[in-house]
Write a protein that binds this DNA or RNA. Structure first.
Length: 544
RNA sequence: CGCGGGAUGGAGCAGUCUGGUAGCUCGUCAGGCUCAUAACCUGAAGGCCGUAGGUUCAAAUCCUACUCCCGCAACCA
């Protein structure tokens, strides 16, 4: 079972390119594991509770639920557009989730993990938290970043986090696979040393009403993180008493991969979440694995609302199409690290790798097969022994192995680079074998058939594998090749999918080039120049 | 001395851990090809690997010092 989750997005603003990256990454991994025949479940959703949603709703003079629903719709619409194939939708206002959170709270209280305590101190209204001396500036006051700071005394409920930190340190140290990449795990280990306070898990209702009420103390609602993190198990069927609308928890858990951003590793997932699970009684073997991704920066700067450089994925989809956006996001980002977003680069990668390389390869191969061989693939009983063809078959096998290895290591960028490298091999193979010349000599028909079958076989395998990133384009490629993806699997992908006599369709471009008017102009000039040169050459030859 | 990341041909990056011909993509230039989405293939130019020292037979890589850039309040993956 491959249970994969994403962070659930906070519904106080529209989705941006960073949200999209995380979901696309998770979706690509989910699709890959589905292709491999694994039972796969992808969970994503929205975090709808909390102070900021309540505030925004008050400003708009609507209920928090209405506000959250409005924003939620934007997320759902984007995920539909980007082809995110989620199996479960985690919205924290869902009654099933609320019930689960309350059951967990009740259980933890019975176990003695929760306690009520009065606390008096300085409270930041903006940040929704009490401040300690660590937050004081050099002059002894709290800086402007905390907004309005008031002195406040109130009772709250606490989770005995510190009772679990010794275990956590041991667990993270002895289970290197619990956080990927490893340098993030090192960050976490450092952060554990600093976790010296228990976690306040309640907010008085008079201050914040938009949340899940504590089942044993109705004057309080649950702190957003204690609510939100539980989505990973509540929507997996934890404590659901066999609710048929939820999955079987025992089948799903533990999550093979929880995809999160670097900002919420510490303390939320790395400390709170692991400790919460431990308190609930989950063993080391039942802990989820975290995949921590970096951020997309804009020209080296952090993306932020104040800088006004937020990128709306919908705008990109309008220009490039959703699949090009998907490809760019997982191709140009080294999983785990920050990367730079650049629309020009996205266009370049689309035009070169998808249009010029892969798209053109499929198109020219299918076209030659249609024109020269009537659309029928002829496969010899024994594959051609010539060096070029043998090398191409070897390249294909190596590529499948490399792709598999990279995808299993979450390395989408290198996986796609491997596919592209094989496409380059194929294009070079055409130059060397010159099938369009072979077609002019009837006696060389067997060679022509062999070359084209090698090319088309490569198109099938590459077109199939790329399906986890580009489901739609993959389907179109395989449709032209008349191959059913359902009959294939990465593990058994071997030379010889196309059988003798296989019929293919005439091609039509799957990845049309994206060019501005200016670029088209430039291309035209270049072509005119080349034509003039060819004409001069022809004239010179005629004179001789 | 706050913490961390970075500085490699025009652009973006890999290589640094485990010293030894500096590699990739794009761009530029030249040639080839004509099956193809004015695509494809081949080749070339272009770098004293931030600066200054040090270790070594040998340093982009190890050591030291310095310079410059970017994150580290909020919005926020």
């Amino acid at each position: 079972m491959f249970y994969i989750t994403t962070a659930i997005d906070y519904t106080n603003g529209s989705p941006h390119i960073g949200h999209a990256y995380e979901k696309v990454l998770a979706d690509v991994l989910a699709r890959w594991h589905r292709m491999c025949g694994e039972d796969t479940f992808l969970l994503t959703g929205v975090d709808q509770h909390g102070q900021k949603v309540q505030q925004k709703a008050e400003e708009a003079d609507i209920s928090p639920q209405e506000y959250a629903d409005t924003v939620t719709k934007r997320f759902i619409a984007l995920w539909e557009r980007l082809g995110i194939s989620y199996d479960g939708w985690a919205a924290t206002t869902d009654a099933r989730h609320k019930a689960c959170v309350q059951k967990i709270l009740t259980n933890l209280k019975e176990k003695g993990c929760l306690y009520k305590k009065a606390y008096k101190g300085f409270y930041s209204v903006r940040q929704e938290q009490f401040l300690t001396d660590k937050e004081r500036g050099e002059d002894g006051n709290f800086g402007p970043e905390w907004g309005q700071v008031i002195e406040l005394e109130e009772e709250n409920w606490y989770f005995n986090l510190t009772a679990h930190t010794a275990w956590l340190k041991e667990f993270v140290t002895t289970h290197p696979e619990c956080v990927t990449p490893d340098f993030r795990r090192q960050d976490l280990l450092q952060a554990i040393e600093r976790a010296t306070n228990d976690l306040c898990i309640s907010r008085p209702k008079d201050r914040l009403s938009w949340g899940i009420p504590l089942p044993f103390d109705p004057d309080f609602v649950t702190y957003v993180w204690f609510d939100a993190l539980i989505n990973y198990i509540s929507f997996a069927g934890y404590l659901s008493d066999g609710n048929p609308t939820l999955p079987d928890f025992n089948k799903l858990w533990p999550a093979a991969c929880e995809v999160i951003g670097k900002d919420i590793l510490v303390p939320a997932h790395g400390i709170y979440w692991f400790c919460m699970l431990h308190a609930m009684g989950f063993s080391d073997d039942e802990m989820p694995r975290l995949l921590v991704h970096g951020w997309l920066n804009i020209k080296g700067e952090k993306m932020s609302k104040s800088l006004g450089n937020i990128v709306d994925p919908n705008d990109l989809c309008d220009v490039f199409g959703p699949e090009a956006v998907r490809y760019y996001l997982v191709r140009d980002t080294k999983t785990g690290y920050d990367s730079d977003y650049d629309a020009e680069r996205m266009k370049m990668i689309y035009n070169t790798e998808l249009a010029n390389d892969l798209g053109n390869l499929c198109n020219r191969s299918l076209n030659m097969c249609t024109r020269y061989l009537g659309g029928t693939v002829t496969v010899a009983a024994e594959p051609s022994a010539d060096e070029l063809s043998a090398a191409l078959r070897q390249s294909m096998a190596d590529t499948v192995a490399r792709f598999t290895e990279c995808m299993n290591a979450y390395n989408t960028s290198e996986a796609l680079a491997a596919l592209n490298a094989h496409v380059g091999q194929c294009n070079a193979y055409i130059e060397k074998t010159q099938p369009f010349m072979l077609a002019k000599d009837e006696t060389r028909l067997p060679e022509l058939q062999s070359v084209l079958s090698h090319l088309l076989e490569s198109c099938v395998q590459v077109g199939y594998l790329i399906g986890c990133v580009l489901p739609d384009a993959s389907a179109r490629i395989l449709s032209q090749l008349q191959v059913d993806a359902a009959t294939l699997s990465p593990q058994t992908l071997a030379w010889g999918i196309l059988k003798d006599g296989h019929a293919v369709q005439a091609p039509s471009p799957v990845f049309p080039r994206i060019l501005s008017e200016e670029e088209k102009q430039k291309m035209a000039e270049k072509a005119a120049k080349a034509a003039a040169k060819a004409a001069r050459k022809a004239a010179a030859q005629e004179q001789q």
